[in-house]
């Protein structure tokens, strides 16, 4: 994850599958599209990134539920559970990530949700990234990350989990 800034191109892994191909394969595996909740906790209104990611995931064949702005951790956990999300993408640029993200993790765990892929995106200082990951966040994407990288991480992560079940 130290490489989050220098990630970007993903040559080297499997040749790019087109979105319809990936969608078809996934749908055949579990019977529906990958479902992602894109969530904006905190009071900041910086939704440029969240909306771009939501759109990129949708274009990649996923079903995207965008919570809208200013959500409490309770609202986000509730949405993820109700929507039976495969992944949650939290976007936060308010500086409150060390308060709000652990709260979301805690609420999900309390409800017995342990199979959701959890990613965080935003202006997250390096020293907070390790801590977030040790709490159960699967990946932290910092500014400059390409959308392809995020799409691929979510697809691989969700598929990996479904295989291990």
């Amino acid at each position: 994850m130290e490489a989050s800034g220098s990630g970007g191109t993903t040559t080297g892994t499997s040749p790019a599958e087109t979105a319809p191909e990936a969608e078809a394969r996934w749908t055949a595996t579990i019977g529906r599209k990958i479902r992602v909740v894109v969530a904006k906790p905190g009071l900041d209104g910086h939704d440029r990134g969240a909306k771009i990611i939501a759109r990129a995931l949708r274009d990649a064949g996923m079903e995207v539920i965008y919570t809208g702005l200013h959500q409490t951790p309770e609202q986000i956990a509730e949405t993820a559970i109700q929507e039976d999300a495969d992944a949650i993408g939290i976007s936060i640029l308010s500086g409150a990530h060390m308060t709000l993200v652990p709260k979301i993790v805690e609420l999900l765990q309390a409800q017995g949700v342990d199979d959701v892929l959890l990613t965080v995106g935003g202006t997250i200082p390096t020293r907070d990234i390790d801590q977030l990951k040790s709490m159960g966040v699967d990946e932290v994407f910092t500014p400059g990350t390409g959308t392809d990288e995020i799409v691929e991480f979510i697809r691989n992560g969700v598929e990996g989990r479904s295989r291990s079940i």
Partner: peptide, 22 residues
């Protein structure tokens, strides 16, 4: 900061973790 911009006092539940951050 964000709570001030949104009209929340610093001791409001929604302000937790956001006071003085941005």
């Amino acid at each position: 900061d964000m709570p001030t911009l949104m009209g929340y006092d610093s001791d409001h539940a929604r302000s937790l973790g956001e006071v003085g951050r941005e």
